[in-house]
Design a binder for these strands. Structure first.
Length: 504
RNA sequence: CGGGCUGUGGCUCAGCCUGGUAGAGCGCUUCGUUCGGGACGAAGAGGUCGUGGGUUCGAAUCCCGCCAGCCCGACCA
């Protein structure tokens, strides 16, 4: 084929269109007939399953247990916390009826008419603070019942105006942790612990460096006292919020009446937290690592880390080659990578070799192995890495490969992180003046993360957001951001830089 | 919810202005030749042209209503 790249357009030509084409080419998800709701296909769901399993281990390690709460929330629950209610009002799907009446039409078709109107409408959960809060209120009586450390894996629904596969869908999968504590200090510590879990997971599992920090009041979760975020940069230099952890103070405890009898025999309100990451992380992985040939999935979370492609030039040696591939796969599966058995697939489909090869390139499988009659004779395998060019191929003696396979996978994992880190660092700039700032985010400029001394108000943020489509992604933690200076907008003294960027 | 655009086989689209009853490329199936490789040839499957109504001898094509989707705003994990 004459195509230089598997994906058209390239990232440089049209990034949003590239993203859509990549998702399709990788066969990860598709739009469904229900607007805004996606069908997650096996390759995309396999990635989610790995993310889910690995994160779940970290949640358990930090003392949490899983539970499940209802999909439907009484409307009145949402009304209990004013800011929360306001924040989610415009994106709630509402269930108003509980049965259908079947009507036969004269033309022979059937119509289903909603009847049985509910006395109180039910909202499909956009998030579960309120209904979990109601449960917590029943469960907590004494300080001895605290802390309560619960997580749930589920779907939620937010009626988004403009859906995009994985990045913003009306229904999405996520986990939401909800905890209740005796003191503010404990709750804040929990919030920070989970914030750190997300940061580590993004870096070590998804090979994406993030900037951890706190959200400004304007960007805060509705009803939260503090919101912590991990912000990633993807290849069009925009920011994407990859996970959030909220300290909710006593706001939701008050709304749901989560009270306990304290050590001093007085009734007190609990301090609660919530934290979540969603299938949006899949979109983040695609945009952070993908290239003009498709997705590149970090080995730790890849549904298959290795795909073996049997090279079968002659019918008479086909079975022998396939047997050899199966044997190799079996040997590989006995090894572990990052604590999990190697995920190896032998692609035995009777298709043209080139077509098969490109399919796995587009899907982003980290490592492809080719094995044919010549390799059997020479006791070697041909190794192709997805972080290298599509034609790059190394012939390695089989024994040597078996010895080094996990190192090679780790090397791919590391190279992806290094690449993403280099991209981020090259596009993070310390600027001083409004002019520089405007130039940085001008239509024809590259953009990126602007680190600015800031002392403005929420209204000032609003103005910048409207004029330049730029928001404060976070007030970062970390010493490198502590710096005395003057706010670039107001000129007031400022002791810390914040991160501005365009965002998803 | 405002402004613009579009709905034709699985996908991308042509045809519509100047009505006459459906096309291309890719994909798919079969056969053959190739093949350490996203190859080539031949044959073939697949469409109530978003939907309802109107004009007409005749509508993918003209007119009206409705529905859906896309893009640009407001909102967002």
């Amino acid at each position: 084929m004459s195509n230089a790249t598997a994906i058209t357009p390239t990232r440089a030509q049209d990034f949003p269109e590239w993203y859509q084409q990549v998702v399709r080419a990788a066969d990860m998800a598709e739009n469904s007939e229900v607007r805004g709701c996606m069908v997650i296909k096996p390759w995309g769901y396999g990635l989610w399953e790995n993310i889910q399993r690995q994160l779940d281990v970290k949640f358990k390690e930090t003392g949490h247990v899983n539970a499940y709460f209802p999909l439907l929330i009484p409307l009145s629950y949402l009304e209990k916390e004013a800011q929360h209610a306001e924040g989610f009002a415009t994106e709630c799907a509402v269930v108003t009826h509980h049965r259908l009446e079947v009507q036969k039409q004269p033309d022979g078709t059937t119509k289903m008419i909603p009847t049985g109107e509910l006395a109180e409408p039910l909202v499909i959960r956009p998030t579960s603070e309120t209904i979990i809060g109601a449960a917590f209120a029943r469960w907590v009586e004494s300080y001895r019942d605290l802390p309560l450390l619960i997580n749930q894996w589920c779907n939620v629904m937010r009626w988004e105006m403009r859906p995009r596969l994985f990045l913003r869908t009306a229904e999405f999968l996520w986990q939401e942790g909800h905890t209740a504590h005796e003191t503010a200090e404990e709750a804040i510590a929990e919030t920070r612990t989970m914030h750190k879990v997300y940061e580590d997971f993004m870096r070590d599992h998804l090979a994406i460096p993030v900037i951890p920090g706190e959200k400004t009041e304007r960007e805060r979760f509705p009803g939260a006292v503090q919101t912590f975020t991990v912000e990633a940069m993807v290849q069009d230099k925009k920011a994407i919020q990859a996970g959030t952890s909220h300290y909710l103070g006593q706001n939701f405890a008050k709304a749901a009446n989560i009270q306990f009898l304290g050590r001093d025999n007085t009734r007190q309100l609990a301090h609660t937290t919530s934290w979540g990451v969603s299938t949006r992380m899949i979109g983040t992985v695609i945009m952070a690592h993908g290239d003009d040939d498709g997705v590149i999935i970090p080995p730790r979370v890849a549904p298959n880390q290795i795909v073996i492609l049997p090279v079968t030039p002659k019918a008479e040696t086909r079975q022998e080659v396939i047997d050899a591939c199966e044997a190799l796969a079996k040997t590989l599966r006995m090894q572990t990578f990052a604590g999990e058995p190697l995920r190896v697939h032998v692609d035995k489909r009777d298709l043209q070799g080139g077509a098969k090869n490109w399919e796995w390139i587009k899907k982003g499988v980290p490592m492809r192995l080719e094995m044919g009659p010549r390799d059997i004779t020479s006791r070697s395998v041909a190794v192709c890495r997805r972080d290298q060019g599509p034609k790059a191929k190394e012939f390695v003696p089989k024994e040597e490969f078996l010895q080094s396979v996990t190192e090679r996978l780790q090397d791919i994992q590391d190279s992806l992180l290094a690449r993403a880190t280099a991209l981020r660092d090259a596009n993070m700039k310390k600027l001083e003046t409004l002019e520089e700032f405007k130039a940085f985010f001008a239509e024809d400029s590259e953009g990126g993360f602007a680190m600015m001394n800031w002392a403005g108000s929420s209204d000032d943020e609003d103005t910048l957001s409207k004029d330049l489509k730029v928001t404060i992604r976070c007030i970062p933690h970390g010493d490198q951001f502590a710096e005395e200076g003057k706010c670039f907008l107001t000129g007031k003294p400022s002791s810390r830089r914040v991160v501005f960027a365009r965002s998803y």
